[in-house]
């Protein structure tokens, strides 16, 4: 165990954890942040996605020590009820999911994609999402949400 400084959703936290512990369990169990979710623990599905200095990473495989000193953003920190992020807005407008258990990966990956590429083609959308699983099969709604966010022109903001 060792004390580590983490910056999550703009707030500083000190945690006393095994530095090898994956970031996922620290966020969930020490900081009670629900959104990165456990899907496989193997880096295969994306349910545990968070942004680390703006990049989408899989928190289930990332030792917490490697996240120290970086800006960590979880879905909770992306937008709020009164002020959803434009990507969240688009997913809400599309009613994109079924159970929604997978959605951290899709929403946060979509945000990163649209920042880099505000008007992706269908092929680019599919390839950005290649590593994600949605077991319910909500893909069609998800792709529509990305297109909608791209059209709104605000998603890259």
């Amino acid at each position: 165990m060792s004390p580590l400084a983490l910056k999550v959703n703009g707030r500083a936290h000190m945690v006393d954890v095994d530095p090898q512990c994956p970031l996922l369990y620290v966020l969930r169990d020490n900081l009670a942040l629900n959104n990165p979710r456990f899907g496989c623990g193997l880096g295969q599905c994306g349910a545990c996605t968070v942004l680390l200095d703006g990049r989408a990473v899989r928190s289930c495989r990332l030792p917490v020590s490697l996240a120290a000193g970086k800006e960590i953003l979880t879905l909770e920190g992306l937008g709020s009820e009164g002020n959803p992020h434009p990507v969240q807005r688009a997913f809400i407008d599309e009613q994109a999911f079924q159970c929604g258990y997978c959605l951290n990966g899709w929403v946060l990956t979509a945000k990163v994609l649209l920042e880099k590429n505000p008007h992706p083609t269908d092929a680019e959308i599919r390839s950005a999402f290649a590593g994600l699983v949605c077991r319910c099969g909500s893909h069609v709604g998800i792709f529509n949400a990305v297109r909608r966010a791209a059209q709104s022109g605000k998603a890259g903001a």
């Binding site: 629900n34 456990f38 879905l75 992306l78 709020s80 009613q95 929604g100 258990y101 951290n104």
Partner: peptide, 15 residues
């Protein structure tokens, strides 16, 4: 459930 889920406010049994 859709909006709270996408806003990261939903609680599943995991939580």
């Amino acid at each position: 459930d859709m909006s709270p889920k996408i806003l990261g406010q939903w609680q599943y049994v995991t939580d």
